[in-house]
């Protein structure tokens, strides 16, 4: 690979943030797993002057399972998720997404923060995290802030992270009792493929009605996004096939897919509807 850049390898978070802050007009990019960035640099889609390697910054590691919230470090890898029984229990959708995420080597190095920060409309971990109401901690040398993942994406490959910031942690509230949390990845093959249509659904049921509904879609809009129009159809209702149809249709009509090499917009809309219907029905049938 030919791409002349400088590389800092700080060993502390402060060091990493300081290195990011000292860009001076240069393009400085953080690199953790590199599974997106190295590919983009090789293809000359990214041309950094300097990189900040995060591989030694252990403060970005670690999962915490508190009574209210679950919090994971930005450098948590996809494989770390798969090896965690707590995640399997608390966020099965994330496990489903992690299983079908790249191949073993990519899962071993690709990080949760990196998947979020890639801004890819096909980022597989994002739909599950959106339906879990995940929140991001963004740190820079000067400040730390939190931001709902739902507010993170601004447009295609545009996000709310400033160039000197890192996603240091990702957290989300534990699911209420009687919740279902699922993800379906539709791709052109089973192993290691870019998602054609991704649907994540989190449903909570209380007193015979759907108390909370979250539906998020991948690869059918410029960014991964929730379809709140569909969620609104379901929340507060005892679900019926007609209501679920209505929600599925809302999801399909709200998404804004494009034609690309993997599928047409029309097919994506069709599968958004079918998979939303399927996942919501399965969740409701299990809970109600």
């Amino acid at each position: 690979m030919y791409a002349p850049f400088e590389l800092d390898i700080p060993t502390t978070l402060d060091g990493a943030l300081a290195a990011l802050a000292n860009g001076g007009g240069e393009t400085v990019l953080p690199i953790a797993g590199g599974t997106n960035l190295i590919v983009d640099i090789r293809a000359k889609r990214e041309r950094p002057d300097r990189m900040v390697g995060l591989g030694e910054v252990d403060e970005l590691l670690g999962m915490e399972f508190g009574p209210e919230r679950i919090s994971i470090g930005g450098r948590t890898t996809v494989s770390d998720l798969l090896r965690s029984p707590e995640i399997a229990h608390e966020a099965p959708s994330l496990i489903e997404a992690a299983r079908l995420f790249g191949g073993l080597m990519v899962r071993n190095t690709g990080t949760v923060a990196g998947n979020i920060a890639s801004g890819s409309p096909a980022a597989d971990l994002v739909p599950p995290l959106l339906t879990l109401d995940a929140e991001l901690t963004l740190a820079s040398a000067s400040a730390t802030r939190t931001l709902a993942l739902d507010d993170y994406y601004l447009g295609y490959k545009q996000d709310a992270r400033r160039p000197d910031e890192l996603i240091t942690r990702i957290s989300w509230p534990r699911l209420p009792e009687n919740s279902a949390n699922t993800f379906y990845k539709l791709a052109r093959r089973k192993g290691d493929a870019i998602t054609v249509t991704g649907v994540a659904v989190t449903l909570s049921v209380a007193d015979g009605t759907c108390s909370r509904a979250r539906i998020a879609l991948a690869s059918v809009a410029p960014v991964v996004r929730r379809v709140k129009e569909a969620e609104a159809v379901l929340e507060g209702q005892a679900l019926t096939p007609a209501l679920i149809d209505e929600a599925a249709e809302a999801a399909a009509s709200t998404c804004t897919p494009i034609d690309d090499i993997r599928a047409s917009a029309g097919y994506r809309r069709h599968t958004v509807e079918a998979l939303t219907r399927r996942l919501v029905t399965q969740a409701w049938d299990r809970l109600a």
């Binding site: 590389l7 390898i9 590919v39 790249g102 990519v106």
Partner: peptide
Amino acid sequence: CEKGDCGACAVLLDGMAVDSCLTLAWM
């Protein structure tokens, strides 16, 4: 492939399988 699609370059790094094409040597 030099982009993490094929796994032909896999090595163990501290016991963990990685694609060496996506790993910078310095790191």
